[in-house]
Amino acid sequence: MRPDAVRGHLDGLILAVLEDGPRHGYAIIEALQARSGGALDLPTGTVYPALRRLERAALLSGAWNTVGGRERRTYTLTRAGRHALARQRSEWHEFRAVMDAVLRPARPAGEAS
């Protein structure tokens, strides 16, 4: 999948993989790749500024914690983040429904009736 196609949706994808619990940066990247079956071909470096942007927007809270014996910055979805995720899901379903309707192959004119 082209990185440009994903970029506008990266925030929602990150919120989604944090829904089931806190993760650190690389674990988030792994979860994105696992959930997409490896189809997300995004530079992994783009995830880190996105995490900070979501944290600044109070959709995530970040803190340094010890994970597996190493200090890692872990991110947790906030209440505002859960609301934002629900809203993005709803908007995505609407968007997909519209795109499906428009992109559906047109039936030949003779089959109209």
Binding site: H24, G25, Y26, I29, T44, G45, Y48, P49, R52, W64, R70, E71, R72, R73
Partner: peptide, 13 residues
């Protein structure tokens, strides 16, 4: 903090 986080992530990779 941002640079350290990137470094950790690259080491993990």
């Amino acid at each position: 903090s941002m640079v350290r986080e990137v470094r950790d992530g690259l080491d993990d990779a």
